[in-house]
């Protein structure tokens, strides 16, 4: 018995097509089973009715969601002015740590101390210390604003991490690139500026994307020192309505932003891995 030659496919292609159809079918069946089990089993738990009322209340969700979205603008704002400051400060610290000039030795020590200190303290503690401490000096308005000092706390902490990522990027550029550039007569500074940094920064874009995503979430920590951003706003609603649904609403808003960003970072990573091979 001969198999019919479908659309001129080779034996191998026919076999692979059949395999693909089989895999898809198995994946679809198993997914359907798991989803069905959750839908059927979770409502059978004794506390489900209560949880549904306090976390998944449709009316509360509809009532509070627009206000949460409004509060999220504050997160976005803080994010938008912190991120560039972090990138610049992080790069400067990375360069300071790799400087060889003896005159800049204090800068190198400072860079090392900076990264050690701010990577070693929990973000929330830095936010508290700077966010409450500095306005406590009795500065006049607007210099006592928690927006300024809270943002600074985030900037310092994140710059420490970002600096280390930039340094790993600088290390990832092969030393032969430096040799080649030096052999052409470029100065050390020119080599860094025109040959090493452009490659280093490109190499660490995916890793820095992940830092941006983490920052977007950590902006919420500023709620502890005052700004009514989305997390704080959800807390206000929770107290007002005695219902946790606003927190779910806030989580959904975060996910709307972070999931595409995470996917994009993963895509960049995968692309980079492919290019290296």
């Amino acid at each position: 018995m001969t198999t019919p030659k479908a659309a001129g496919l080779t034996r191998r292609q026919q076999y692979e097509a059949a395999q693909r159809r089989r895999s898809t079918l198995i994946a679809a069946t198993s997914t359907a089973l798991v989803v069905a089990a959750i839908i059927i089993l979770v409502p059978m738990t004794p506390g489900w009715e209560k949880v549904q009322r306090s976390f998944f209340n449709g009316q509360t969700f509809v009532d509070t969601f627009p206000k949460l979205l409004d509060a999220f603008k504050i997160n976005v704002m803080i994010f938008l002015w912190s991120a560039p400051a972090i990138a610049i400060l992080g790069l400067l610290i990375a360069l300071a740590r790799d400087t060889k000039s003896p005159a800049l030795f204090p800068l190198r020590i400072f860079g090392a101390a900076f990264t050690d200190i701010f990577r070693g303290i929990p973000v929330i503690l830095t936010v508290y210390l700077i966010g409450f401490g500095i306005p406590g000096l009795g500065l006049p308005r607007p210099w006592n604003s928690p927006y300024i000092w809270g943002s600074l706390a985030l900037i310092l902490t994140y710059a420490a991490y970002v600096a280390e990522i930039f340094r790993s990027g600088i290390d990832s550029v092969h030393h032969s690139q430096r040799s080649a550039a030096l052999s052409l007569g470029l100065s050390e500074r020119q080599v860094t500026r025109y040959v090493v940094l452009p490659q280093a920064i490109r190499n660490v874009v995916p890793a820095q994307m992940n830092m941006l995503i983490a920052l977007q979430k950590d902006v919420s920590l500023l709620s502890f020192i005052g700004p009514v951003e989305i997390f704080r706003q959800a807390g206000v609603f929770k107290s007002l309505l005695a219902n946790f649904t606003p927190y779910v609403g806030a989580a959904i808003i975060f996910l709307i932003v972070t999931i595409p960003a995470t996917r994009y970072a993963d895509y960049l990573m995968a692309k980079q891995r492919k290019e290296r091979r």
Partner: peptide
Amino acid sequence: QTVRSRIGMVFQSYNLFPHMTALENALLA
């Protein structure tokens, strides 16, 4: 620097700058 700009060197592994075109590689120095 002044010495190196008078002595050209070519390496086994080419060491072209990958983020620049061939022409930009030559124009940089």
